[in-house]
């Protein structure tokens, strides 16, 4: 009960601050929107091998951009731990009689909610960029697709919030964190099939892409929204869930070991 209350208040803190600083929401969707604009319009006439016939590039791209938005936002929110450390607030959190796991979970819950709000905003805006559901989709298929999209968004957010938290727990300052995160984030992004099918990559890069949990997240988002994917829905869900659990455990482990002073 005490632990749940702690998770709740850690979550609430993030949400209060998110709505107090709305520019954070706008800022986070700026990058994916830029990609949508330049890649989407730039390649609108191109036909990429690996993209199913009848699916335009922009429609192929939108689930990838939602995945990208979740990846970038989640990875970077690890920095909030380092800001808390810098401003001393981490000590206030760490001296409370709450298990370190609950503290990590509270942060992940807050970050995931932020990510989903941003992801939904991007999803809504994508309709202005030419995204639309296939005409063959019934209303119930669209609703099911949106629910599934939310599930994948949550799982991607949890996984990469955990990665961000793991890095943050092992670092001293925010500058170093940004450097490392950029170095890790871009390969994860390009090796996920977010902008082009991974089947077009050389075999050794394809192999790396198969090790990337985001590949299955993006694939699952495509299955949910456009009905076309490399793997089955069950397989994507299973891998994303397993990655989320494994990475959360890792984050809790590192966070527990980290020093707050």
């Amino acid at each position: 009960m005490v632990e749940l209350l702690a998770i709740y208040v850690l979550w609430k803190r993030e949400i209060i601050k998110l709505f107090r600083e709305k520019e954070r929401i706008i800022g986070s969707v700026a990058m994916p929107l830029m990609f949508l604009t330049f890649l989407g319009f730039g390649f609108s006439q191109a036909s990429l091998p690996g993209v199913k016939a009848g699916i335009s590039y922009i429609v192929f791209l939108v689930p990838g951009m939602i995945g990208m938005n979740m990846l970038f936002g989640s990875m970077f929110s690890g920095i909030s731990v380092l800001w808390d450390k810098e401003f001393g607030f981490l000590k206030e959190i760490m001296v409370a009689p709450v298990s370190r796991i609950s503290i990590a979970l509270g942060r992940i819950a807050g970050g995931a909610t932020t990510g989903i709000i941003q992801g939904l905003l991007l999803f809504g805006l994508s309709f202005f960029f030419g995204f639309g559901f296939s005409e063959s989709f019934s209303l119930s298929r669209i609703i099911a697709g949106i629910i599934l999209m939310l599930v994948f968004m949550v799982l991607i957010a949890i996984s990469f919030l955990s990665v961000g938290l793991s890095f943050a727990s092992n670092m001293r300052d925010a500058q170093g964190f940004e450097l490392i995160i950029n170095f890790v984030m871009f390969p994860l992004f390009f090796l996920s099939g977010a902008v082009s099918p991974i089947t077009n990559l050389p075999p050794w890069l394809q192999f790396l892409a198969y090790l990337n949990p985001l590949t299955y997240g993006v694939d699952g988002l495509r299955r949910s929204l456009i009905g076309s994917s490399m793997f089955s829905l069950q397989f994507d869900l299973f891998i994303c869930l397993a990655a989320a659990i494994a990475l959360t455990s890792l984050a809790a482990f590192f966070f527990d070991r980290s020093s707050s002073v």
Partner: peptide, 11 residues
């Protein structure tokens, strides 16, 4: 009460 302030200044 810590030596340096440990408040969340945005709350």
């Amino acid at each position: 009460v810590f030596q340096e302030p440990a408040l969340d200044s945005r709350l």
